[in-house]
Each structure stands twice: as C-alpha cells, then as structure tokens.
Nucleic acid binder design. Sequence first.
RNA 1: GGUGCCUUGGAUGAGUGGCUUAGUCAACGGUCUGCAAAACCGUCUACAGCAGUUCGAAUCUGCUAGGCACCU
Length: 309
Amino acid sequence: MKTLVTLVGPTGVGKTEVALTLARQLGSPIINADSRQMFADLRIGTAAPTATQLAEVQHYFVGTLGIRDYYSAARFETEVLKLTEQLFRTHDTLLLSGGSMMYVDAVCNGIDDIPTVTDETRALLRQRWQTEGIERLKAELRLLDPDYYAIVDLKNPKRIVHALEIYYQSGRPYSTFRTATRKQRPFRILKLGLQRERAELFERINRRVDQMLADGLLEEVRAMLPYRDENALNTVGYKEMFQVLDGTWTLDFATERMKKNTRVYAKKQMTWFRRDNEIHWFHPDDTEAMMRLIAPSDTKTSHFVLPST
RNA sequence: GGUGCCUUGGAUGAGUGGCUUAGUCAACGGUCUGCAAAACCGUCUACAGCAGUUCGAAUCUGCUAGGCACCU
C-alpha cells in the first residue's frame, strides 16, 4: 500500500527539521507544501530549506517559481498528483510537508474543477470593483448566482469578485462548479501534525525573525522592490520590510510587526488544522513516535515470530 | 504644610447628567473549494475607593488614596 505522509503545523514549529529526519529514515524525497517557499527569490523571509538541506534530501516545489508567476492551490493539486504517480513507482512512502493549509487540503481532498480566470477577466473585475464599488457587484451576483449569494460571506469582497470572475469567464454560475465532494486518491494518506506549547512557539518565531534579519532579509526584500505589487510579496516579512525601505517605519517597529503578524499567521494555521480530525498530533522532538505510526511493523514483528521447531 | 490639575477595560484614548456597545491597538476564538503567509468575521461592557445629590452619575458634591505642577 502506497502512503503519502503529510506533515503539517504552524510556521516556526520545526517542520523543516522533522521532515528531513523522517525523509532520511523513510528514504523519501520531500514534497514541499509551502506556497511561499516555492518562489526562488524568497528564501530568507520564508525560512526555505537551506542549500545544505536541499543537497541532502531531494526536494520538490522549493524555489521553482519566478516572482511574477501565477500559481494556485488547484495547480498544486494537479502537479503533486502527477509527481506522486511517478514517485510511487520507486517509493512506498512519500513525504509532503508544509503549512499552506489550502495547498495541503487540495492534495488530500481535491478541489472542484473550476475554470482558470484569465488575466483580462481578473483585471476587468478588479477595475469594476474599484470604480463601481462592491455594492454594485454584490447586487449583480445576487441576480446571476443567487445560490452562491445565499451562502457567501458578503463582507468579503474577494469572494464576491471571484464568483463573478468565474461567471464571466465561463458563462455559468460559480455555484454550479461547486460539488463539495471529496476526491478519492489512489494511495493512503497519513496526516501528522506538529504542535508546541504556544509560549514556546512564539518564542521560536521571535527568534527566527531576528535570525532572518541577521541573515540579510532586508537585502532580499530590497531586491524585490520592483515587484512589490505581486501577490507573492503580499507576505509576512516582506510587507513590513517594504515600509522600512520606504522610510515610513523604523526597522525596530517593522520587526515587531513582523513578529506579531507571524504569530497571527501561526494561529490561523492552527485554527485551520484543528478542525481536521484526521491529523495525528506530535511534539516535533518525538520523531520516534511518528515513525512508529508510519511504519509500525518494521522491527517489531521479528520479536513475535516464534522459532520454528 | 498650602493651592491647582488629573485618575476610564491588557494598552491607548473619546465621552461633562439619561439616547451608546465610543474608537483604535493588543489578546482570544472562528470562516475558508483557484492570488490563501491572502481576504473576512466574532468576543473581551470599563469608568481609583467610599459616601452623598438626583427619578437617573463615568459625567455634580464631599471625603479617602495615588499621580503631576506650582507656592511658603
């Protein structure tokens, strides 16, 4: 039975280290599920695996995107599925590790087949949102897709706009694409979650932010200035440091904000993962317990085999 | 010792007799099916203490405590 081991947890909990340990023992490559570590130019601020770590274990989806590339959870789903199909020919166990909640869910549960929105449609709707206001778009959605209008979070402009994008892209209401069904995968999925006490996690986050700055985060951000409006840079760490480069925030203030926003992000991740009752939770130090769950039989069985007489 | 000003929820900060839950930040909780490290939502009802005035006080009066300023 082929198994995809999925390692999740909040930012800063220690996923990278644990993933390496497990990968070594399983002889598996690491499939990265962190939406920001995929960008080649965002290494320091996303705490991407180091060159040494990358050299030691084969990684996929780390540093594969240019800063202006479009990407999505749906695309991740299809690419990972294609990759696993290939890798499972030579591996029984594969490791998927990362904290991007939606990316992980896309791989585990699937995403409905919704048409990709073109740049033109996206730009058009964004412009209408700005010039006509969200109320107009809401009224329009109510007429075009009453079913979705009834359930959508009307306070969230992104959801309204997206539903309209789909409508204009395809000529069909967004709600007709939503099946709410879970896709079956041709392999077993074992979900492991990493957890620490909150105070300890926050302490690690604070220290890691300081380390990023010492490692040259500001220079990395400076190189991204020409692309600051790209979605990939709407990211904790980069947002704050742009303010420093603009001269509107002091470095100290920005650093505090970055720490705070990272903590908030970690909490959001925990909120998301908490409701997934398929996750088995572990302390990051307890990789032995994780291995026992992943490969329970390996060494144990021999003890129970009675010598034949 | 005397005089004047001040004291609001974790922080900041409006409010000078009832209409009110100020607001902001933090903290905590939650939503989530194509940009998700995104976007959005909810919770946290305080007025330094005591005694009065009043139908009714954070808002008026007195005393007590603490803080700040000035004076002998």
